[in-house]
Amino acid sequence: MICFHGYGDDPALARAVAAAERAGVHHVVVDQQQLTGVEFELADDGTHGQVRLPGRRVALTDLTGCYARPLAPLPSPDAATAAREAELAGRMVAWLDAAPITVLNRPRAMHSNGSKPYQAQLIAAAGFAVPRTLVTTDPDAVRAFVAEVGPVVFKSVSGVRSVVRVLDEAAAERLEQVRHLPTQFQARVPGVDVRVHVVGERCFATRIESPAVDYRYAERDGLTAELTACELSDELAERCVRLAAALGLVLAGIDLKLAPEGHATCFEVNPMPGYSFFEAHTGQPISEAIVQHLADVPALV
């Protein structure tokens, strides 16, 4: 039996649950939005215990895999409920980190994405070029960087989601603000955006054509993004699989920029990818692959 954990209405989770239902795979959903009557009991060893759902009880040792997209507990006006749900969330995350089963992905494996320049070093070690990056508190250093590398974008250093913006004239006028907090700048890399979802050893690549700097926010900026399924060379696909594995991720969303001659630069590896957006646009069977991986693959300890 496999487990799904997260917000029930999260499209990525909902699609995987639907795929399990279609495939007839036994599963249980621990929905963070429906925790009334739910208990998660965990023994001192961090692996034994049970999940109690209304009208159902599942031993943790009966679970062979879990697809987890744990998000912050829902706010509750009732302090006792909020405390109970926060505690349950904490136990669940600890179990996901410790359980001797296949987990997509273990919370402790997701941390590399918490620092972009940190992750960039790991990405490069796995054989991908990364964008030239500067993190600084010095406006003059930013100006020198621009003079050296040409157009640059700026974004958060951490995993906090931020809209990638071009350092244009208006933004350059605010450069003094970097003195208050180190800020990340990256050389703009020409080419086409490709998102690669790795599930175990399978790759699903999507080509994104968009005039937007950050295609995720194209619509908000009055622009479009066209998504098309595409094929990677065997070598590039293998490199993507190796990169995900090197980061300890079974499921990963890898953001590439492909230059016209085929050279790939990797920007980021998302350990909790919202693959549903890409699946919905391309029809790639990513949710099926997730369920297949959890249901078929022997447990990883």
Binding site: H111, A120, V135, S158, G159, L181, P182
Partner: peptide, 26 residues
């Protein structure tokens, strides 16, 4: 969060000159 991310990247770059390997968020 931003500062922690920077510290982690700095420390990772020092290789085996750190006592403890940093994590991206820690």
């Amino acid at each position: 969060t931003e500062l922690a991310a920077l510290f982690s990247s700095w420390l990772l770059g020092l290789g085996d000159r750190v006592v403890t390997r940093p994590e991206g968020t820690s």
